[in-house]
Design a protein around this nucleic acid. Structure first.
Length: 249
DNA sequence: AACAGGCTCAACCGCAGCCCG
DNA sequence: GCGGGCTGCGGTTGAGCCTGT
């Protein structure tokens, strides 16, 4: 095994990327795909290591990256998923289309963790040491409550959710269970649909907080106005709180 | 206006696991 | 089955920005 030597080579640039470098990388990948990351910088004419190129592409340049503030729903989803999955940022990111693991990790450490601490709800340190433990995929249903979760039976892979979930919406539910069956896979087009309609005349159908403007501010002790998404999570957890708890993931 | 402390986030580091010869 | 190379992941860092005094 051992560490890849590519970043140790002399003469490779480090630090913030310039617009020119970004452009070169985007141009190259859009034309040829990334292929072998290690070989990419040389082929593209970049004085960067492949690792750096990969990170820049995945975390910043990818066309499907959704920039901007996290919505209330996304923050809730992160909190819940973190409770269920632990620090498996890439898995959490996979449930939040358009968001990167790095971004989610940052949000968690800078805002959400602090927010939970403010409420005296210290997030547990999940005992998920092994990356190889199988996780049956599920997805957070972040759609509006007008499209209710799928009704179906409980499965053995239901994910135990948190007692501190929905802090941002003041919707704390104890020992709730996030059902895989309640959380259908998110269509990758979902976010683009939601956020493209955000500015449309149909935006009234969307949760009031989806634009991130009316976020909860724990430092000011302000709450979100009750909105449909809050009701949705409340319904979800209320509906499921008596269901059996999963064994540890 | 200046400074200090806090916060954010892009980027780096190093390990672990997967893949392939 | 083994070993080396590559990729992906999570933890950490630090520069720049923000906010309060």
């Amino acid at each position: 095994m051992g560490r890849s030597p590519c970043c140790e080579k002399m003469g490779l640039k480090k630090g913030p990327w310039t617009k020119e470098e970004d452009q070169i990388l985007v141009d190259y990948i859009s034309r040829h795909g990334h292929g072998n990351w290690r070989a990419l910088p040389k082929r593209a004419g970049l004085l960067r290591c492949g690792k750096s190129c990969r990170l820049r592409w995945i975390n910043y340049l990818r066309p499907d990256i959704k920039r901007g503030n996290f919505s209330h729903e996304e923050e809730d989803a992160i909190i819940k998923l973190h409770q269920a999955l632990g620090n498996r940022w890439s898995v959490i990111a996979a449930r939040l289309p358009g968001r990167t693991d790095n971004e989610i990790k940052n949000i968690w450490h800078t805002r959400l963790k602090k927010r939970l601490n403010d409420y005296g709800l210290v997030p547990p340190q999940p005992s998920l040491k092994s990356k190889s433990q199988p996780l049956k995929p599920f997805a957070m249903d972040l759609q509006t409550p007008s499209s209710p979760p799928h009704s179906s039976t409980t499965t053995s892979t239901d994910v135990h959710a948190s007692s501190y979930c929905s802090i941002s919406s003041h919707c704390v539910v104890s020992d709730a269970v996030l059902l895989q069956s309640d959380l259908p896979e998110v269509d990758e087009s979902f976010w683009s649909q939601v956020f493209s309609s955000e500015n449309s005349s149909d935006a009234g159908d969307l949760p009031a907080t989806v634009d991130g403007e009316s976020r909860f501010d724990s430092t000011k002790n302000e709450t979100y106005e009750t909105n449909s998404s809050v009701e949705f999570w409340h319904r979800l957890f209320s509906k499921t709180e008596n269901l059996p708890v999963l064994p540890e993931l």
